[in-house]
Design a protein around this nucleic acid. Sequence first.
DNA 1: TCTGGGGTCCTAGGACCC
DNA 2: TCTGGGGTCCTAGGACCC
Length: 426
Amino acid sequence: MKAIVDCNNFYCSCERLFKPHLDRKPVVVLSNNDGCIISRSNEAKKLGVEMAGPYFKAKPLIEKYDVAVFSSNYNLYGDLSWRVMETLRIILGRNNVEVYSVDEAFLDLSIFPPNELPVIAEKIKKTVETWTGIKVSVGVAPTKVLAKVANRLSKKYVQQYKGVMVLNSKEKIIAALKQTEVGDIWGVGYQYAQKLKEQWSIYDAYQLSRMSEDFGKVYLGGVVGSRLLRELKGIPSKDMEEELVTKRMIATTRMFGKPVGNIDSIKEAVATYTSRAAEKLRRQHSAASVINVFVVSKGENHNVDFRGATSSKSIILPAATSFTNELIKPAVALVDKLFIEGTLYKKAGVILGGIVPDNSIQGNLFVSETKNCERKLMDMIDNVNFSQRDDVLKFAASGTTRNWKMQQNFISDRYTTRWNELFEVK
DNA sequence: TCTGGGGTCCTAGGACCC
DNA sequence: TCTGGGGTCCTAGGACCC
């Protein structure tokens, strides 16, 4: 049996943890650039504040009901996420925990007898909440997809289930599937849901679970679809995965605070994003050999991903590297090729690909002495920037004015990761 | 001029997720 | 005026190789 543990309204919960007076008050957290709403407390949901809705549109509602608003503070969320995951690892052992996202983890519970699972699930929930202060919901079932179904219902009918649902019998599974709309299944997105409803009159998860594996294969994306069908039928087909330590692509992309028509500002932004991406690269001890840079002009739909963006160019480096200076130069050169005079841009991004392990971490015979010095310099910059405030040390190409920088008007302190922002107990 | 089967690597694009 | 920012997997098709 498998479980999924999911933090409730994670970002809002993080903000509330250090502001107890906001308990039971409506809270929302905004995306970067304070663009749209990405997390809502239950109270905010009840008021009708929409998920992923633009902030400006919800503003009247927010002001009317005095909703607390925060810009996203990823340093804080990342640290609290680590505490939650570490708690799970302590309870169940490292090998039985698969971190799936910042606020979710799958657990392998096959070591426990099925009849004990309700008690175990309850215990896991209580322990995480006591140790971290973050509320979680737990869904338990024979497969990952069914565990997701259970988790969702445990939250939806919280009065009844109190945030824990265990599907340990055939009857319970069927009942849960019947209460789940087809579009709410993990792995069925908007496009597939429309297709299932319109072409085959399949509206709920139970109906879909009765279709054949081949149906999934033909109409829901090949092997991905047939796995989905098997999981719905209770046959485990998505295994627990090893912790994914090395990412295969690393992207840093941002909207600008306001549209920018000046090539030097865009170069500054791209240089800054490249530094950030290079930091991520070094953190996982990798090097990259492909740099992709894209810009999005004011009129374009910025929601398309970088491949859809009209202006995107990439360059393949002669050798993989993780040095900021070796990445910045070609990245900035790409801006020259992309930029069109007289155009206003609202977004830019850098994507690093061709990622391989960085072997130059230990000095070796074939790497010159200067290389090793550079490596040490990079580590030093990373350390200073992490422990002090952001970007005390940066490359000149990143500029100093930053008139393109995103808006963050409601940022909270980084209580747990910056010395000068520690939470004070009076 | 035409002829074969089998393989790898890479890229673009389509779907999904939080 | 005003709408995140990251990621993943899979497939098809082209280029190239023996």
